[in-house]
């Protein structure tokens, strides 16, 4: 990390961003509740995206620093070989291969 870059202190950052990020946690909590409330919750919770989501929540809480990068890496395809074809392929936001 570079040298201090502004007149703000950590407590100022907490003050500036606390409310909006508190609200984001509510969005996440209610998103998980919503899945539980709807028909077929077990199926959704077995989906690789749900599993990845739980994993990044843990990473966010348990990683001591560079959390954003750790979350990004956890969601990324770690392989190195090119795909034979991209036809009909799309991105999901989490790596499907991790579920196998």
């Amino acid at each position: 990390m570079s040298a201090p870059y502004g007149p703000m202190r950590a407590i100022d950052i907490l003050d500036l961003y606390f409310i909006e990020n508190r609200s984001r946690i509510m969005d996440i909590a209610s998103f998980l509740d919503r899945i539980d409330r709807y028909e077929g919750a077990d199926e959704a919770k077995a989906d690789f995206r749900y599993q990845a989501f739980l994993q990044i929540l843990d990473i966010t809480r348990d990683t001591p620093r560079d959390r954003a990068k750790a979350v990004q890496v956890a969601l990324s395809d770690p392989t190195t070989e090119p795909l034979d074809s991209a036809l009909g392929m799309k991105a999901y936001g989490a790596w499907k291969g991790a579920a196998k």
Partner: peptide, 13 residues
């Protein structure tokens, strides 16, 4: 560079 889960691998390639 690619989006989402493909970005890291694609950026390196």
């Amino acid at each position: 560079t690619p989006h989402l889960e493909d970005k890291l691998k694609g950026t390196r390639m």
